[in-house]
Protein backbone atom coordinates (compact mmCIF):
# COMPACT_ATOMS: atom_id res chain seq x y z
CA UNK A 1 0.00 0.00 0.00
CA UNK A 2 1.34 3.40 -0.93
CA UNK A 3 1.15 6.46 1.22
CA UNK A 4 -1.16 8.96 -0.39
CA UNK A 5 -1.72 12.13 1.57
CA UNK A 6 -3.93 13.77 -1.07
CA UNK A 7 -6.73 11.53 0.13
CA UNK A 8 -7.01 13.77 3.18
CA UNK A 9 -7.58 16.98 1.21
CA UNK A 10 -11.42 16.95 1.44
CA UNK A 11 -11.19 16.46 5.21
CA UNK A 12 -8.89 19.35 6.07
CA UNK A 13 -11.78 21.59 7.08
CA UNK A 14 -13.31 18.85 9.22
CA UNK A 15 -10.00 18.24 10.99
CA UNK A 16 -9.56 21.99 11.50
CA UNK A 17 -12.95 22.07 13.23
CA UNK A 18 -11.66 19.38 15.58
CA UNK A 19 -8.48 21.35 16.20
CA UNK A 20 -10.59 24.38 17.06
CA UNK A 21 -12.55 22.36 19.60
CA UNK A 22 -9.27 21.08 21.08
CA UNK A 23 -8.09 24.69 21.38
CA UNK A 24 -11.38 25.72 23.03
CA UNK A 25 -11.29 22.89 25.55
CA UNK A 26 -7.66 23.59 26.40
CA UNK A 27 -8.19 27.35 26.70
CA UNK A 28 -11.10 26.96 29.13
CA UNK A 29 -9.34 24.18 31.04
CA UNK A 30 -6.17 26.28 31.27
CA UNK A 31 -8.07 29.12 32.93
CA UNK A 32 -9.76 26.60 35.23
CA UNK A 33 -6.56 24.86 36.18
CA UNK A 34 -4.61 28.07 36.81
CA UNK A 35 -7.37 29.38 39.11
CA UNK A 36 -7.58 26.01 40.88
CA UNK A 37 -3.79 25.76 40.95
CA UNK A 38 -3.54 29.21 42.51
CA UNK A 39 -6.01 28.33 45.27
CA UNK A 40 -4.27 25.01 45.95
CA UNK A 41 -0.85 26.68 45.91
CA UNK A 42 -2.10 29.16 48.50
CA UNK A 43 -3.40 26.24 50.56
CA UNK A 44 -0.11 24.38 50.21
CA UNK A 45 1.86 27.37 51.51
CA UNK A 46 -0.65 27.95 54.31
CA UNK A 47 0.44 28.05 57.94
CA UNK A 48 -2.31 25.62 58.97
CA UNK A 49 -1.11 22.03 58.86
CA UNK A 50 -4.48 20.49 57.95
CA UNK A 51 -4.98 22.89 55.04
CA UNK A 52 -1.51 21.98 53.75
CA UNK A 53 -2.27 18.28 54.19
CA UNK A 54 -5.58 18.50 52.34
CA UNK A 55 -4.00 20.37 49.44
CA UNK A 56 -1.15 17.88 49.28
CA UNK A 57 -3.60 14.97 49.25
CA UNK A 58 -5.40 16.51 46.26
CA UNK A 59 -2.18 17.06 44.31
CA UNK A 60 -0.81 13.62 45.18
CA UNK A 61 -4.04 11.85 44.27
CA UNK A 62 -4.63 13.53 40.91
CA UNK A 63 -1.02 13.22 39.83
CA UNK A 64 -0.87 9.50 40.58
CA UNK A 65 -4.15 8.33 39.06
CA UNK A 66 -4.35 8.01 35.26
CA UNK A 67 -6.32 10.75 33.55
CA UNK A 68 -8.43 8.14 31.79
CA UNK A 69 -9.65 6.81 35.14
CA UNK A 70 -10.37 10.31 36.43
CA UNK A 71 -12.26 11.11 33.25
CA UNK A 72 -14.41 7.98 33.41
CA UNK A 73 -15.03 8.66 37.09
CA UNK A 74 -16.54 12.03 36.20
CA UNK A 75 -18.18 10.99 32.94
CA UNK A 76 -19.98 7.97 34.34
CA UNK A 77 -20.18 9.14 37.93
CA UNK A 78 -21.70 12.62 37.67
CA UNK A 79 -24.98 11.47 36.03
CA UNK A 80 -25.27 8.97 38.88
CA UNK A 81 -25.66 11.82 41.38
CA UNK A 82 -28.07 13.68 39.13
CA UNK A 83 -25.66 16.03 37.35
CA UNK A 84 -26.27 15.76 33.62
CA UNK A 85 -23.65 17.63 31.63
CA UNK A 86 -22.32 17.15 28.12
CA UNK A 87 -18.98 15.67 27.15
CA UNK A 88 -17.44 19.11 26.59
CA UNK A 89 -18.16 20.31 30.12
CA UNK A 90 -17.10 16.98 31.63
CA UNK A 91 -13.87 17.15 29.66
CA UNK A 92 -13.15 20.70 30.76
CA UNK A 93 -13.87 19.84 34.39
CA UNK A 94 -11.65 16.74 34.33
CA UNK A 95 -8.83 18.56 32.53
CA UNK A 96 -9.05 21.51 34.93
CA UNK A 97 -8.94 19.33 38.01
CA UNK A 98 -6.03 17.21 36.83
CA UNK A 99 -4.25 20.22 35.33
CA UNK A 100 -4.83 22.13 38.56
CA UNK A 101 -2.74 19.58 40.43
CA UNK A 102 0.21 20.21 38.12
CA UNK A 103 -0.36 23.98 37.94
CA UNK A 104 -0.41 24.23 41.73
CA UNK A 105 3.07 22.72 41.89
CA UNK A 106 4.37 25.27 39.39
CA UNK A 107 2.78 28.21 41.21
CA UNK A 108 3.83 26.90 44.61
CA UNK A 109 7.44 26.77 43.42
CA UNK A 110 7.01 30.36 42.22
CA UNK A 111 5.70 31.43 45.64
CA UNK A 112 8.49 29.65 47.53
CA UNK A 113 11.10 31.26 45.29
CA UNK A 114 10.10 34.78 46.35
CA UNK A 115 12.76 36.60 48.30
CA UNK A 116 11.75 37.07 51.96
CA UNK A 117 13.04 40.62 51.78
CA UNK A 118 10.26 41.59 49.39
CA UNK A 119 7.58 40.33 51.77
CA UNK A 120 9.26 41.95 54.76
CA UNK A 121 9.47 45.25 52.90
CA UNK A 122 5.76 45.02 52.18
CA UNK A 123 5.02 44.25 55.83
CA UNK A 124 7.13 47.18 56.97
CA UNK A 125 5.21 49.42 54.59
CA UNK A 126 2.11 48.48 56.56
CA UNK A 127 0.28 46.54 53.84
CA UNK A 128 -2.33 44.09 55.14
CA UNK A 129 -1.62 40.39 54.61
CA UNK A 130 -4.29 39.98 51.93
CA UNK A 131 -2.91 42.86 49.87
CA UNK A 132 0.63 41.53 50.24
CA UNK A 133 -0.56 38.25 48.83
CA UNK A 134 -2.70 39.47 45.96
CA UNK A 135 -0.62 42.46 44.90
CA UNK A 136 2.93 41.31 45.61
CA UNK A 137 3.33 37.58 46.09
CA UNK A 138 0.94 36.32 43.40
CA UNK A 139 2.07 38.60 40.54
CA UNK A 140 5.71 37.68 41.11
CA UNK A 141 4.92 33.98 41.52
CA UNK A 142 2.78 33.86 38.37
CA UNK A 143 5.41 35.73 36.41
CA UNK A 144 8.20 33.34 37.34
CA UNK A 145 6.04 30.27 36.80
CA UNK A 146 5.02 31.12 33.24
CA UNK A 147 7.38 28.52 31.81
CA UNK A 148 6.32 25.61 34.04
CA UNK A 149 2.69 26.62 33.51
CA UNK A 150 3.42 26.49 29.80
CA UNK A 151 4.50 22.89 30.03
CA UNK A 152 1.31 22.20 31.95
CA UNK A 153 -0.57 23.66 28.97
CA UNK A 154 1.39 21.58 26.47
CA UNK A 155 0.68 18.47 28.50
CA UNK A 156 -2.96 19.47 28.59
CA UNK A 157 -3.10 19.73 24.78
CA UNK A 158 -1.68 16.22 24.52
CA UNK A 159 -3.95 14.90 27.26
CA UNK A 160 -7.04 16.43 25.64
CA UNK A 161 -6.77 13.74 22.95
CA UNK A 162 -8.07 11.32 25.59
CA UNK A 163 -11.36 13.24 25.58
CA UNK A 164 -12.14 11.48 22.29
CA UNK A 165 -12.91 8.39 24.40
CA UNK A 166 -15.93 10.14 25.94
CA UNK A 167 -17.37 10.99 22.51
CA UNK A 168 -16.05 14.54 22.40
CA UNK A 169 -15.13 15.11 18.76
CA UNK A 170 -12.01 17.20 19.10
CA UNK A 171 -8.98 16.76 16.84
CA UNK A 172 -8.39 13.09 17.64
CA UNK A 173 -12.10 12.32 17.67
CA UNK A 174 -12.56 13.82 14.23
CA UNK A 175 -9.49 11.99 12.95
CA UNK A 176 -11.09 8.73 14.06
CA UNK A 177 -14.17 9.62 12.03
CA UNK A 178 -12.02 10.46 9.00
CA UNK A 179 -10.27 7.09 9.37
CA UNK A 180 -13.53 5.21 9.34
CA UNK A 181 -14.61 7.07 6.20
CA UNK A 182 -11.37 6.80 4.21
CA UNK A 183 -9.95 3.52 5.55
CA UNK A 184 -6.55 5.21 5.53
CA UNK A 185 -5.50 5.04 9.19
CA UNK A 186 -1.78 5.37 8.53
CA UNK A 187 -2.01 8.65 6.62
CA UNK A 188 -4.55 10.12 9.01
CA UNK A 189 -2.60 9.33 12.16
CA UNK A 190 0.80 10.32 10.76
CA UNK A 191 -0.63 13.71 9.81
CA UNK A 192 -2.30 13.94 13.21
CA UNK A 193 1.01 13.16 14.94
CA UNK A 194 2.76 15.94 13.02
CA UNK A 195 -0.11 18.38 13.60
CA UNK A 196 0.04 17.82 17.36
CA UNK A 197 3.84 18.14 17.35
CA UNK A 198 3.64 21.39 15.34
CA UNK A 199 0.87 22.72 17.58
CA UNK A 200 2.77 22.08 20.80
CA UNK A 201 5.94 23.48 19.23
CA UNK A 202 4.16 26.74 18.36
CA UNK A 203 2.70 26.91 21.86
CA UNK A 204 6.13 26.46 23.40
CA UNK A 205 7.52 29.29 21.26
CA UNK A 206 4.63 31.52 22.31
CA UNK A 207 5.30 30.69 25.96
CA UNK A 208 8.99 31.59 25.62
CA UNK A 209 8.03 34.93 24.09
CA UNK A 210 5.46 35.57 26.84
CA UNK A 211 8.03 34.69 29.49
CA UNK A 212 10.56 37.07 27.95
CA UNK A 213 7.98 39.84 27.70
CA UNK A 214 6.67 39.45 31.26
CA UNK A 215 10.19 39.39 32.69
CA UNK A 216 11.52 42.10 30.38
CA UNK A 217 12.51 44.40 33.25
CA UNK A 218 14.61 41.62 34.77
CA UNK A 219 16.73 41.14 31.66
CA UNK A 220 20.23 42.51 31.91
CA UNK A 221 20.74 45.69 29.89
CA UNK A 222 22.30 44.98 26.54
CA UNK A 223 24.48 47.73 25.21
Amino acid sequence: MKIDLTILAPYVGFLAEGALLTAEVCAVALVGSVILGMLVAIARTSQLAWVRGLAFAYVDLFRNIPFLVQLFFFYYGLPEIGIYIDAFTTGVIALSISGGAYASDAIRAGILAIDNGIIEAAEVSGLPRRVIFTRIVLPIALRTSVRPLGSVLINMILTSSILSTITLNELTGNARIVTSETFRPFEVYVVLLLVYAALTYLVSIAISLLHRWLNRDMQPEVN
Binding site: M1, I3, I154, L158, T159, S161, I162, S164, T172, A175, R176, T179, F183, R184, P185, F186, E187, V188, Y189, V190, L192, L193, L194, Y196, A197, T200, Y201
Partner: peptide
Protein backbone atom coordinates in the same frame (compact mmCIF):
# COMPACT_ATOMS: atom_id res chain seq x y z
CA UNK B 1 12.24 11.65 20.04
CA UNK B 2 10.88 15.21 19.65
CA UNK B 3 7.91 13.92 17.65
CA UNK B 4 7.20 11.16 20.16
CA UNK B 5 7.44 13.54 23.11
CA UNK B 6 5.22 16.18 21.54
CA UNK B 7 2.32 14.08 20.34
CA UNK B 8 -0.40 12.29 22.29
CA UNK B 9 0.29 8.67 23.17
CA UNK B 10 -3.25 7.83 22.14
CA UNK B 11 -2.54 8.98 18.56
CA UNK B 12 0.72 6.99 18.54
CA UNK B 13 -1.22 3.94 19.67
CA UNK B 14 -3.79 4.40 16.91
CA UNK B 15 -1.03 4.84 14.35
CA UNK B 16 0.61 1.57 15.34
CA UNK B 17 -2.57 -0.40 15.92
CA UNK B 18 -4.65 0.79 12.95
CA UNK B 19 -2.00 2.21 10.63
CA UNK B 20 0.78 -0.38 10.63
CA UNK B 21 -1.28 -3.43 9.56
CA UNK B 22 -2.40 -1.77 6.33
CA UNK B 23 0.94 -0.27 5.44
Amino acid sequence: SEILKNSPVLVQLFLVFFGFPGL
